[in-house]
Amino acid sequence: MKRRTFVKSTVFTTVAIGILPSSLLASSGDYSYDELIGKGKPKLFGEGINLRKEAYESFLEMKNAASREKLDIKIVSSYRDFYRQKGIWERKYKQYTNDGLAPQQAISKIIEYSTIPGTSRHHWATDIDIIDGAAGYSGNDVLDAKKFHGDGPFRPLKEWLDENVNTYGFYLVYTDNPGRKGFKYEPWHYSYAPVSVPMLDAYKKLKVKEIITAEKVAGAAHFTDDFIEMYRKENILDINPHLLP
C-alpha cells in the first residue's frame, strides 16, 4: 500500500478517537529551531499553495474531491515566514497605537486573530486559510466567520469540510468549542495533522520568551512573563485537541 493511501485510510479510521497513530508522526528531531520559528527554508510545493510535500499532496486530493461537488477550495494564506509575520504584526501594532490604544490594548487586539512572529503555525507550511473560490462574495474581508455560516457564501464549503476534511488529515485549528481561549474562532484555518502535530511537539520544547523578544518585535517591551505564559497556554496550545501531541 502506498504511504499516501495508508495515511488517508489510517487518519480516517482514527478520527473517532481523535488520536493520530505514532507511525504517522515525524520525529520531533527532524525540525530545526529556525524551521520551527519561521526562519528556515522548507521545500514548498504547488504554485499558490506552498505546503510541505505530504500536506500538498493531500490538499490536492481534497481539492479534487471538493471540485466534484462544485466547490473550489482556494487558499488565501499558507506558508508565511518570520519576516512576513513580523510585517503583519508591526503594521497592526502601529495602526492600533496610532488610533490611541495603549500598547497592552493594541497587543490584546492583535492576538484576537494574529500571532506574534516566531509563534505562527503558518511558519510550518502545514496550515492553510481557505475559502470557496467558486462562490460569489462581496468585500475584501473574506476571512469573516459570518461568511461560513447561515446564508454566507462559504457555508456549503464549510458543511462539506465538516464531513470530509479529516479524511485528508486536515483539522480545524481554532474551533468554536465552548470554553476554548486564545485566538478567536477561525472556520477557515485548517492544519495538516500528520506533520503539524510533531512540529508542535518540537515547538513546545522551545522557550517562547526568547523567541518573541530576540528580534525586538514592536511591543515586546510589554511582553511580561505572565503575558507570555498566558499566550503560550491559550494562543499556542488551546487548539483543537486532534492537533495536540
Rank of each mutant, 00 (worst) to 15 (best):
K216V: 04
Y56H: 14
D226S: 13
Y93G: 06
L161V: 14
E57Y: 10
I111D: 05
F82C: 08
A218C: 07
L172V: 01
K216A: 13
K94R: 14
I19R: 15
L157H: 04
K2Q: 12
N240R: 04
A145W: 02
D34C: 09
Y190F: 14
Y137R: 07
L44E: 10
Y79H: 14
K2I: 02
P241V: 01
F183K: 06
P241S: 06
P153H: 04
Y231S: 03
K8F: 06
A106W: 03
A125D: 02
R68H: 07
W188H: 04
K181G: 03
N98T: 12
P194V: 07
R91D: 14
A135M: 09
T10A: 09
W188R: 01
H123A: 13
D201R: 11
E35S: 15
I107R: 01
P187C: 00
V76G: 09
I130W: 00
V76C: 02
N166H: 10
A135V: 14
T119G: 05
G152V: 02
G152H: 03
K92Y: 12
Y171P: 00
L60H: 05
E215H: 13
I17K: 11
L200A: 06
D225P: 06
L44A: 06
N177S: 15
N177C: 08
E229Q: 15
K146I: 05
Q95I: 14
Y93E: 06
L71Y: 03
I107H: 02
A135E: 03
N164G: 01
L244V: 07
Q104N: 09
V173W: 00
V165P: 00
K184T: 15
P178K: 07
T10E: 09
R155P: 01
D162E: 13
Y56S: 08
Y137M: 05
K86I: 12
P156Q: 02
S196T: 15
I130H: 00
